[in-house]
Amino acid sequence: MVKISNLELNEFPLLLAPMEDVSDPPFRAVCKENGADMMYTEFISAEGLIRDAAKSVKKLDIYDYERPIGIQIFGDKIESMREAARIAEEAQPEILDINYGCPVKKVACKGAGAGILLDLPKMQAMTKEIVDNVSLPVTVKTRLGWDENSIKIIEAAKRLQDVGVQALTIHGRTRKQMYKGEADWSYIAEVKNHPDIHIPIFGNGDIDSPEKALEYKNKYGVDGIMIGRASIGYPWIFNEIKHYFKTGEKLQAPDIHERVSVAKKHLDFSIEWKGDRKGIYEMRRHYTNYFRGIPNFKPFRTKLVECNDYHEIRELLDEIAARFEFSFSTTP
């Protein structure tokens, strides 16, 4: 069993990554239903929370069925991060997570996210302020370094552990790589196997199949795996990995009826949480992923992203289930 402070997780937990514009409550709902052991919110701007910006505050919404859940914050100012941590704590998550890994320019080039990897003393000082001012377990998600010439992940892990971080998730790429190239898990294994590191270490990057999850679990010895992009439009990946771990066999991929069913649930929760107009609009980005791999699906996808009426969308989803019942490939 993996423990983060007093929080007990499974023997080898599967975590849902905090993804901007993806990991909202509707998406988390379908991932939890399909086997995610612990999930995180989208990353939340510290400045937004302090200024009571509606978009940032809305991201604090969490539901009991999601637990255990972590709220993730990001920012470049120590004072702002400390205050944002206090605000996030009031939402009563199980974990407070700090984003030291976001590679996007508007975040990293301002010294937040992966940008702080260029200043490890500041990273340590910021983390200490947060740990000292909240009662929640504090965890961190980070990358290997800014670029291939500045990988200091073992030093970063030691510094974070020294100031009280209870677990660390490492994405096996540098900031410079963004999401390109292959994630290098050998560095993650170095951290996990270092004699001075005793907190749980979770690996992240490129896990897109049960076979790869098992290979990396055995090869790199991490305490658990965080899954991001592979879960978008495919929340079944969590249960598929768990089944493969237990049996060595792959579950049959979801058929068209299961895909339509989950898309409907996602749509309903999206509307419930965001309202009709925004819920329908923001759901559009998910349809392509839910129905990826279906031949001759483009006309239906076009209709789904153009339709603004809830009942018409539901009818269209029913039509998709009937139309592709026998021709749909079950390959993920």
Rank of each mutant, 00 (worst) to 15 (best):
L7V: 15
E11N: 15
E11D: 15
M19L: 11
P25V: 09
P25M: 01
P26S: 09
F27Y: 14
K32P: 10
G35I: 08
G35P: 12
Y40G: 01
I44F: 05
I44L: 03
A46H: 04
A46N: 00
G48H: 02
A54T: 13
K55M: 01
K58Q: 14
L60R: 02
D64S: 13
D64F: 09
Y65R: 14
Q72L: 01
Q72A: 02
F74N: 00
I78M: 12
I87W: 02
E89T: 02
E90H: 06
E90R: 10
Q92W: 00
N99V: 00
K105I: 03
V107K: 01
K110V: 08
P121V: 09
S135A: 10
P137A: 04
P137E: 01
V140N: 00
R143F: 00
N149A: 07
S150A: 14
A157F: 08
V165I: 15
Q166F: 04
G172Q: 10
G172M: 07
D184M: 08
N193H: 13
N193P: 10
H194G: 14
D196W: 11
H198N: 15
P200K: 07
N204V: 05
I207Q: 04
E211H: 04
E215R: 13
N218W: 04
Y220F: 15
M226P: 11
M226T: 11
R229K: 09
P235L: 08
N239C: 09
K250C: 07
L251T: 08
E258N: 04
V262R: 03
V262E: 03
A263D: 07
F269A: 14
S270M: 15
E272I: 08
W273E: 15
K278E: 12
K278N: 08
E282A: 04
H286Y: 15
H286M: 06
G293Q: 05
I294E: 05
K298Y: 13
R301C: 09
K303I: 12
L304Q: 01
V305C: 05
E306Y: 09
D309P: 02
I313H: 00
R314F: 10
E315W: 01
I320V: 04
A321Q: 07
A322W: 04
S329N: 11
T330S: 10
